[in-house]
Write a protein that binds this DNA or RNA. Structure first.
Lengths: 270, 270
DNA sequence: TCCGATTTGTACGTATGTATT
DNA sequence: AAATACATACGTACAAATCGG
């Protein structure tokens, strides 16, 4: 039986969560000011230091900002954002956040033998011209040896029936202690499958941001033909588990008409 | 004389800065482990709490990660990233970080009268079909009244001679206590001009991520013709000053062949 | 298996400084 | 000038995870 890693919670995380709810329930038109730190502490029964820790994190996420001597205020921009690039989120959820009805379709699920590449594997026929180069990159990303096998999962996410995201995940097969069923591949996210069958919890990832035309996307996957847009956003993704081991290498393609990523940033001061 | 806002520094910011240098000078192949927190504190002459605060921020930026009971480690991915989407950075600097020689060209600098839109202003001839809609959005972003005047600055950033970024900035003219000279428009960033002549310090911004084909970009600016790529990344940007007032609304277009944005993210756990 | 040393995680209390009203 | 509220920093205590013997 796989050990299922759990997410730890602490006091300031709870406060943070409660404050987040409090903030989103606030009527911003009336006032965007939060209660003083000591008062929040009294309300939740914790010290000011713990409150400050929660506020520090919310400030770093740009949900609030603080003015010395005046108080803590909700960032109205943050409240308006529906889809944020950070933190990473499940794609189906993303589509719903955008106000659309999400529908997920599993295009293919196969096991790829990296060592046998280009020598007549089952899936060679599905590989385009630039595909070999991409495969090499995924293998390098995942730090797999020659001959290691990879799962390849391709899914399309629809927003109100329109194709909004095409996602191709690669995961080392050796991580899995048990093979998921056909139904599970289709209904569960890679995140969830890794947690259940490999005991791996995704903690962080690195994203590279690219663009391409639909034609260029066609050299990566036939699903490009489904897209209704002329240009797509590509997010190349490498995700790490709790031990900092790479576990998913992915290419995701977005129609920015349906997926409008936003990001709150702080400014670099030198 | 404009008051020039300065950036405050505190103890943990200093430690953070020193640690960052220490990290980048480390030989990651040998060991990615940092000294224990108490030892760092001794070395810098501060308490463990202050060290932890600096480490907290570095961890939130994903430059390091910590393992309970084992230690603090450098994130090897972070060291490999050249161009990060967060925090915001000056575009010329960005191009140099990518290993190219940067060259900046001011395409145009003009003052736009919002109230007179569509009634025969100086620049109407340069406005395409979707431009009016874009102008409205910039005005809404900047919260300017009817009749307020806006600066419009268009620049092209070259990487080794190739057009890599086209950026169009809009700023309320009323913020400026003094009109920058022709030379200053060309040589200084909007960030710098706002600081010197408006006493505004950019603190945070919101970015919206879109894509378009070069043809579609042509309806926004003629500079699209310069681009060598078929699809561009568009970052729509709204920047706020230290008082949370919007000061720059911008459209930036990127050739992702030259500007490869990366981003380190944490994972959303529900 | 257990113990102790090390190291990070969490939380509280306190003191002082500084900006705003 | 006083009150309020956030900012910074130190010290302390104990909890929890890891690792070696």
């Amino acid at each position: 039986m796989a050990m299922m890693p759990v997410i730890k919670q602490n006091l300031s995380d709870n406060i943070k969560h409660d404050l987040k709810k409090y903030i989103l329930d606030m009527d911003l038109k009336e006032s965007a000011k939060l209660p003083p730190e000591v008062e929040i502490g009294r309300k939740f029964g914790v010290s000011r230091v713990t409150v400050r820790r929660a506020l520090d994190e919310l400030e770093q996420e740009n949900l609030i900002f603080r003015i010395h001597g005046r108080g803590t205020f909700v960032n109205p921009e943050a409240a308006a954002i529906k889809i944020s690039l950070n933190p990473a989120q499940e794609f189906g959820h993303l589509i719903e956040l955008g106000g659309y009805e999400a529908q997920i379709k599993l295009i293919s699920q196969e096991t790829i033998n990296r060592g046998a590449m280009g020598q007549g594997t089952v899936n060679q026929e599905t590989m385009g011209q630039g595909a070999s180069h991409r495969m090499k990159k995924h293998c390098r990303n995942l730090q797999v040896e020659e001959g290691a096998r990879l799962y390849r999962i391709e899914k399309v996410y629809y927003a109100d029936g329109h194709p909004a995201i095409v996602c191709i995940d690669y995961m080392p097969r050796e991580l899995f202690q048990q093979e998921p069923s056909e139904d599970e591949w289709s209904s569960m996210s890679s995140f969830e499958l890794l947690r259940r069958y490999a005991g791996r919890l995704l903690c962080r990832d690195r994203v590279e941001i690219l663009t391409m035309t639909r034609e260029e996307m066609g050299s990566v996957t036939d699903s490009a033909l489904l897209m209704e847009c002329q240009s797509v956003l590509e997010l190349d993704n490498l995700a790490y588990d709790q031990d900092n081991q790479p576990v998913i290498s992915a290419n995701a393609f977005f129609d920015t008409k349906y997926i409008r990523y936003n990001l709150l940033r702080s400014q670099e001061h030198y």
